[in-house]
Simulated scan of single mutants.
Amino acid sequence: MSSMAQIVAFGGVVLLGAMSPGPDFAVVVRRSAVSGRGHGMAAAAGIAVGVFAWVVAATTGIAALLAASALAFTVVKVVGAAYLLYLGVKALRSALRGGGELRLDVPDPGGRGSWAAFAEGLLTNALNPKAALFFVALVPQFVGSRASWSDALLLSVIALAGTVAWFLVVANIVGTLRRVFARPAVRRTVDGLTGAALIGLGVKLAATSRP
């Protein structure tokens, strides 16, 4: 993979994939709205690291093994679905407890700061076997069957850059509007909607079968 056209094309496809509504988007929006743009950006960084790892795995064949193994696919799917359900239930509980005075220093839901947001973003992406299927299908279109480590690194950096760029934009837009999101009624709505979305995505992931 050496031409600029290939690099731009790969980056464009990854960016479109990042922009598709899904658990990554829900996590960044909720973190940014509830805990501020810093936590949203930390979640964005975690998601980008997860994407980086998936591209490396796809380029080196590890992700293909996951996709081909019924047991491995099922384990990742079940754990990932359980994690999304956990996040969704946590958001719904927060919505039910929401309210109170208008504040712009809403505590971090997990109480552990930006590292918790980073870990949440990383796990949300890393425990999604659909990401493995996406990159297993995408990467071979841009590299041969014997991709070098330089190819893997280049593709991974491109994927990381595109993903983090998009989610940083999302985190900053939502963070800029935080005065609106800090209102109790709005905060409850955000928690309720993202909680329902994460639970729905978790159920959908649990029902996913290997192609």
Results as ranks from 00 to 15, higher is better:
157 V>W: 07
28 V>M: 06
146 R>L: 10
165 A>N: 13
34 V>Q: 08
160 L>E: 12
152 A>L: 02
128 N>G: 11
185 A>S: 08
107 P>D: 12
50 G>C: 03
98 G>L: 12
136 V>I: 14
6 Q>E: 14
33 A>C: 07
140 P>A: 12
102 L>E: 09
66 L>G: 05
88 G>Y: 00
117 A>S: 03
43 A>L: 03
124 T>D: 00
112 R>T: 08
148 S>M: 03
186 V>I: 06
15 L>M: 15
73 F>L: 04
205 L>S: 05
81 A>D: 08
70 A>D: 12
80 G>I: 07
131 A>P: 08
159 A>Y: 05
203 V>C: 03
51 V>A: 12
16 L>V: 14
86 Y>V: 05
130 K>W: 10
89 V>Y: 00
26 A>K: 02
190 V>C: 02
133 L>T: 06
182 A>N: 08
190 V>I: 02
96 L>M: 15
100 G>A: 08
147 A>H: 04
2 S>D: 13
26 A>D: 00
160 L>V: 13
176 T>S: 13
97 R>Y: 06
175 G>V: 07
196 A>R: 00
8 V>T: 12
189 T>Q: 13
114 S>L: 14
107 P>M: 13
5 A>M: 11
114 S>M: 14
84 L>G: 00
147 A>G: 09
1 M>N: 15
11 G>A: 09
127 L>K: 02
155 L>S: 10
82 A>F: 05
10 F>W: 11
133 L>G: 08
52 F>P: 01
144 G>W: 09
30 R>A: 04
44 A>N: 04
155 L>G: 13
178 R>C: 10
165 A>R: 01
85 L>Q: 01
33 A>N: 07
